[in-house]
């Protein structure tokens, strides 16, 4: 199996997170900012069991997956759902922000085709590309900050957070943190530096989310409440030069991150499908088509996937690792006891 560096894992996860932040519509006040901080702290605790699980170098998720094939199927379904969410985000953004395509569905199909190709290049290409895309994210954020600085008014930020609002925002943020499930699968590919990568990821996730929220709130003021996608609106308002509009540049960032996020889902699904059905052909294509179908269904029915995704994240990223960790410890203790008995009998 391909081996990945810790820094590449960080790059991939932060890129996926930034895509989620760009698509967020409710990072609009002190409650949401505080909620993100609380949610990040909870997530750090939540991923501790999976890190403990991987601490043992003999652990192999491929061999020890809970419920065997059924467990893998659950993860496949989650990644298909998360990929569908990426396509849905594209759908929604193209309705509010000008994209030069006749219909959102066509845009999603073209993006899906690109993702099928990029997924076929392998997981190493994915990780290397994420390393370069992090550079693009950095440049875009710098441009945004430079443009936002003269326009930001600190008085737009009103520290009126309340407990229930913070909790709601924290729960919402947790339900959007699908990268925790991806982390559980991807950790297997990272032989060294997992803990450092995860620590840096959560730190960067908190800092960048709060930074983007702060820019949006201080630049947009009350307009944030009527804006469909505050990130794009803040980008439009944060023009570095008054005579020049540069908001279309954020379209480039959005598109590349959307490709990366969808490609990750297709790659991970394909990886797991390969273990279940190795003889199945065109796995990437089938996965992409399923994602598009689910995405279309979500858009047509306007189904809010937040609760469902939250439950799945709780199960797949928290409950499953905990159960596997306990089971592993139990078996280890059993082995130790039986070997002790054998020694004492001898």
């Amino acid at each position: 199996m391909s081996k990945i560096k810790g820094s590449q894992l960080f790059a991939l996860l932060i890129s996926i997170r930034i895509f989620s932040v760009i698509c967020m519509t409710d990072l609009t006040n002190a409650n949401s900012m505080a909620g993100v901080a609380v949610s990040t702290a909870v997530q750090i605790l939540a991923v501790t069991p999976m890190l403990l699980l991987y601490k043992d170098s003999s652990f192999s998720l491929k061999k020890e997956m809970l419920f065997g094939k059924f467990g893998k199927l659950l993860y496949i379904l989650f990644f298909i759902l998360w990929g569908a969410v990426s396509f849905s985000n594209l759908w929604e953004v193209t309705k509010s922000v000008y994209f030069p395509i006749e219909s959102s569905f066509t845009g999603a199909v073209i993006l899906g085709a690109v993702c099928v190709y990029t997924a076929s290049l392998g997981i190493k290409a994915l990780f290397r590309a994420s390393g370069l895309i992090v550079g693009l994210i950095g440049i875009s954020l710098i441009i945004m900050l430079v443009g936002a600085y003269p326009k930001a008014e600190l008085t737009h930020f009103i520290p009126d957070a309340d407990f229930s609002g913070i909790i709601k925002a924290a729960v919402r943020d947790f339900c959007r943190s699908g990268e925790l499930v991806m982390l559980f699968i991807l950790c297997e590919l990272v032989p060294k530096g997992k803990r450092k990568a995860v620590t840096v990821f959560f730190t960067a996730k908190l800092i960048l989310t709060e930074l983007i929220a702060a820019v949006e709130i201080t630049v947009l003021g009350k307009i944030i409440n009527i804006s469909d996608f505050p990130f794009f609106t803040a980008g439009a308002f944060s023009q570095p030069m008054s005579i020049q509009r540069a908001d279309s540049v954020y379209m480039i960032l959005f598109t590349i991150l959307c490709v990366l996020t969808a490609t990750v889902q297709i790659t991970l699904s394909t990886m797991l499908i390969n273990e279940l059905l190795p003889d199945l052909k065109y796995k990437s294509l089938i996965t992409a088509v399923l994602m598009l179908a689910v995405s279309s269904a979500l858009n047509i029915t306007q189904f809010d996937i937040t609760v469902l995704s939250g439950i799945l994240i709780l199960i797949l990223a928290v409950a499953v690792p905990i159960i596997m960790y306990i089971r592993r410890k139990f078996h280890e203790n059993k082995k130790d006891n039986s070997s002790l008995t054998a020694v004492s009998n001898a």
């Binding site: 395509i101 690109v114 190709y117 290049l121 392998g122 370069l132």
Partner: peptide, 17 residues
């Protein structure tokens, strides 16, 4: 720019592979 970004993604992933 949407098309250019998709094309850039393809080229980027190809280079990375």
């Amino acid at each position: 720019l949407f098309g250019m970004s998709l094309c850039a993604s393809v080229v980027l992933f190809n280079i990375c592979s």
